[in-house]
Design a protein around this nucleic acid. Structure first.
Lengths: 219, 219
DNA sequence: ATTATCTATAGATCTATAGATAATGC
DNA sequence: ATTATCTATAGATCTATAGATAATGC
């Protein structure tokens, strides 16, 4: 994935491996402690890489934070986009995306904590996830499927709800089926008719349930 | 407010003033930069107080962060509780609380940023605001006014939505009437019938509008 | 020969404390 | 006499860089 013997030299591959170790170490440390509380030396140490090598790849902690988030999100995006690929109803798309992310917080806490902790750096997160989410909301409004008047308010409200629910899940503060319950609230917020809420929420959560094709537990 | 000539000595009042200056300086600095990025020396400097005096009042930055949040929230709680005092409908109570806080983000950005930036420290915030909010949600469910199945999920979802909407307001990313739009979404999320949503949201926002008795702009 | 990595360190913070100075209480 | 505040500083980080070592490319 990060190496390609045919189009790169051994040196390039070695370099890529070092970079990859740094990003992986940063992801787990940022997830555990947040960005500010993590020293660069802690990253190189966990990556088992010489301290100075850090600066061969990144100029600052902010820069590796951006890479750490972007790479984590990109990996998840693939799985998510595949799931929502064939859906046409914006309500189903949004429900599934939220169900997926709540599910990921359970299945891959490192990823979950990374998202939640980077809320501090916020702009990174909005950029990483916001593009598609915004469009889905606008689509839903245009299709008359969502009743909300202001797509931006809806974007921030749904995003904020998702992040704090994920955080509560990570903290172990929620009971059964947090993803299902969250989806129900989400769909109601969007203005989906009450008669459809339970059904769509259920389908979305069934689609992301373990065993439904979203493998790779642990990490 | 912080001084009481009749029941305290001059020394106690001097001490209280120093503490108060420290907390005020910490509030504005935490609002601007967050807790971790703020050095204790920066707090004493802005408070115009000797560096060592800090440790006469607080043992650590975390401790003053707790005080900074608690005092800011307590001040706002008074105003808010007065507004919701006579309301009986949980939907109106929750709507008004959210309208109030979105409004405060506009009117008193220092307070708004403090809340938003302390989301990092999160547990402080949940403790500061969570008690009453949880009860209001449970009341609404018990009264059949809210349709949500899990009060905890609802609590985190509504709280997260509020915080990110406040943050978007502070960033200047939202258009007209963000408080009104947010309340509409909030009420829908709770399952308040569509026919009542616009009306309740409007009343809640009218009640907290400038000139409706929630004075003290600026700070 | 070139490029990446590693080790060692200078310089810049930042925290917590010790001891001196100033203000209050009796 | 007591208590609070202030100044100065030791010790602990943490970042960014310089220079040495190791690995790759030709």
């Amino acid at each position: 994935m990060t190496n390609d013997p045919s189009t790169s030299t051994r040196g390039e591959r070695r370099r890529a491996r070092t970079r990859s170790r740094l990003v992986g170490a940063a992801q787990s440390l940022f997830a555990e402690q947040g960005v500010e509380a993590t020293a660069i030396a802690a990253i190189t140490e966990r990556a088992d890489v010489g301290f100075g090598s850090f600066y061969n790849h990144f100029e600052s902690k902010e820069e590796i934070a951006e890479a750490a988030l972007a790479e984590a999100v990109d990996a998840q995006k693939l799985a998510l986009f595949e799931l929502i690929d064939e859906l046409t109803d914006p309500a189903e798309v949004v429900a599934l995306a939220h169900a997926f992310l709540v599910g990921q917080a359970i299945v891959d806490p490192t990823f979950g904590w990374l998202l939640v902790r980077l809320d501090a750096s916020h702009r990174l997160l909005i950029r990483a996830l916001g593009g598609r989410a915004r469009q889905d909301i606008r689509d839903g409004i245009a299709a008359g499927r969502f009743l909300t008047a202001d797509p931006e308010v809806t974007f921030f409200a749904t995003g904020g709800a998702l992040l704090l629910v994920m955080r509560a899940v990570l903290d172990g503060d929620l009971g059964d089926d947090p993803g299902l319950r969250h989806c129900e609230g989400l769909l109601r917020m969007l203005g989906v008719p009450e008669g459809e809420v339970a059904d769509i929420a259920q389908r979305a959560n069934a689609a992301v349930a373990p065993g439904a094709g979203v493998g790779d537990p642990g990490r």
